[in-house]
Amino acid sequence: MASRTSFMSKLTSAFILLCFIPFLFLSAGCKRENKALPILGNQDVVNGDTIRHIVPDYLLTDQDSQQIRISGYGNKIFLADFFFISCPSICPKVQKQMLRLYDKYKDDNRVMLLSHTIDQRHDSVTVLHRYAQNLGIDTGKWKFLTAEKDSIFYLADQYFVSVVDDPSAPKGFDHSGRIILLDKNRHVRGFCEGTDPESVTAFFSTVDRLLAEEYK
């Protein structure tokens, strides 16, 4: 009698296990499915073609006085932010998170980092150069960029980063601490809040997803 009960119990367990096997396969399949990251921003239709939002390819000056355009780096994806060196509020925290991203991707030639200063009056090329040196980074990988104030403010707007003059804000600027992810075609594909380490941790997987998508 006891052995019959034990046999029935084993049979029930085996049946339950068999019922779950298809679900296990299905859930594994779902995890493998990788949807493309969306292209952020408005889209226009011109002559039947869909035109997606693209960040303009402005001529910028880097910390070594070199004139650069991001299109010149062709086959890379970009992580970008807007900051200023004497910023007493959010910038150090955002740069700390940019440093985390730099550390993660410093040996990955497909990724570049761009920090744009919004304070042209104080952040000269010399000051940017010294800042980069003290941050201890490779300036071939992470560029500190400047341009005319109007260009930088417009560029920030195109990156969906809020930057405004505000006399009541610390040092006269009110700006967002977003870190933006650009693909090889200068489409905005994602962002995170640079003041929030958890948001940046989650952003690592967004960057990895774009890398997987762009370099199949």
Partner: peptide, 15 residues
């Protein structure tokens, strides 16, 4: 905290 960070770690040689 905004400069010296939540954990007091600062920022490289800058802070």
């Amino acid at each position: 905290e905004s400069c010296h960070m939540e954990d007091g770690s600062g920022l490289a040689k800058l802070i």
